[in-house]
Amino acid sequence: MGMTLVVKKTTTLVAPFLVTYGAYLALYGYASPGGGFQAGVILAVSAILLMTAYGPKQVKKHFPLGEVSLLEGFSGLFLTVLALAGLMFGAFFLNFLRPYLPGGTVVPFNVGVALKVAAAFILTFYLLSRWVDRD
């Protein structure tokens, strides 16, 4: 079941930092290098690292397939609804939050994209792990 104790311990220690870094990139990406896609990939990597260290079954117990695809669908819907909400203020994809929030709608967009990308990558690895005989 999974890799050696050293690998398991290291990944468990690294994973929370990766999540923090991903969250930082998503939230602050409007003003610094970063953005939704990169943040999403890093969020997904934290789960994928755990998956390689502990085996897919363990990770699937904590993040079940149904919940991950729920997150994916909701974040996709959130993005389109946010884009459509701009319509009420004048134009599709209008940055209507600019006066109230630094970066305006860019921040929620980055968060939505990050969650969508992370969920999609984790789902892809879940599907690929069906062909892995280890674990």
Binding site: G66, E67, S69, E72, G73, G76, L77, T80, V81, L84
Partner: peptide, 11 residues
């Protein structure tokens, strides 16, 4: 958006 909404029905 309807595609995403339909995808949500599965979970």
């Amino acid at each position: 958006s309807f595609a995403f909404a339909t995808a949500l029905l599965l979970p």
